[in-house]
């Protein structure tokens, strides 16, 4: 069984990163009904800014903090400059706008930073723990803990705080939320900042294991998007479960079937889930008003 355990460990690690990306998707989707294809670029920015700030001599923790804050500002700018002006545009236009944003951010990153692959040292060393014949890196535990912590924090935020409930109200009905005195513009700003910060955090946590470069965003966005769909769009629980399921599934496919087709397995399962349950695992059944 050590083999299976090893695959589960690596699946959990990757899955936690996917879950963080999917949680970022979920927040923006809930607040604005926009699926943000530039979510993967937030992860890239988190990793890259940390790398360069750390290389410039800042301590790792400070570099990570700067990266997360800077990415949050970029997220807010994305909302103000590209999403807000396009309010009410059809889904196809919104998809193209956010894909355009992701290509733009990638282009900027390749100019401001470079096109090399980078990493920075793991938080607590590289000596792996041995559990039941399998090994797990301390950094993997950081990633998994990060995923769980963000999920719990978001859950508390949405269910226990007034601001969180204002976000939910805005996602339910923007006009009605405005009528009861919620500043919906501020809610949008908050959602993009939060989503970008979570993406950047995923980048900071994962970079010591996966490395980073200016173009890691596309693959992460696709997987995170798929994970969010698998769990059911707009549901934080779905994002977490979808992300971790997807990670484990990939690791098992890579381990037992074919490492070349590990990405294929993920998409085949997603297609099947969508055929059988078009709203994902946890998505609410929607009825469309005509």
């Amino acid at each position: 069984m050590p083999e299976l355990l090893q695959f589960l460990f690596s699946g959990l690690t990757v899955g936690a990163v996917y879950a963080l990306v999917a949680l970022g998707f979920t927040i923006i989707y809930n607040a604005s009904d926009v699926v943000n294809f530039a979510q993967g670029e937030f992860v890239m920015l988190g990793g890259m800014i940390t790398v360069f700030a750390h290389a410039a001599g800042l301590p790792l923790l400070l570099a990570a903090g700067i990266a997360i804050a800077a990415t949050a500002v970029i997220g807010v700018a994305l909302n103000k400059l590209a999403i807000e002006p396009a309010r009410g545009a059809p889904v196809v236009s919104l998809i193209i706008i956010t894909i355009g944003a992701s290509i733009f951010l990638r282009g900027v990153a390749s100019l401001v930073f470079d096109k090399q692959i980078h990493r920075f040292p793991a938080f607590s060393g590289d000596a792996p723990f041995r559990i039941g014949g399998a090994t797990i890196l301390p950094q993997s535990l950081w990633v998994i803990a990060g995923g769980v912590a963000v999920f719990i924090a978001l859950w508390l935020f949405f269910t226990r705080t007034l601001t969180g409930k204002a976000v939910l109200a805005t996602s339910n009905n923007r006009l009605a939320a405005q009528l009861v005195g919620i500043n919906t513009n501020w809610v949008m700003t908050l959602s993009f900042a939060l989503s970008a910060a979570i993406g950047a955090l995923a980048g900071v946590l994962a970079t010591p294991i996966t490395n980073t470069s200016y173009d890691v965003g596309i693959a992460l966005a696709l997987k995170g998007f798929a994970a969010a769909m698998l769990g059911g769009m707009g549901n934080p629980k779905g994002a977490l479960v979808g992300g971790i399921l997807l990670g484990i599934l990939e690791a098992l496919t890579a381990g037992y079937l074919s490492s070349q087709y590990k990405d294929a397995a993920a998409f085949i399962v997603i297609l099947l889930v969508l055929f059988i349950m078009p709203q994902g695992l946890f998505g609410a059944r929607q009825t469309e008003r005509v």
């Binding site: 590209a82 894909i99 355009g100 290509i103 733009f104 951010l105 282009g107 390749s110 100019l111």
Partner: peptide
């Protein structure tokens, strides 16, 4: 600048 401009034009 190709990618940067492509993204900008799309948006």
């Amino acid at each position: 600048y190709e990618h940067l401009l492509l993204g900008l034009i799309m948006m």
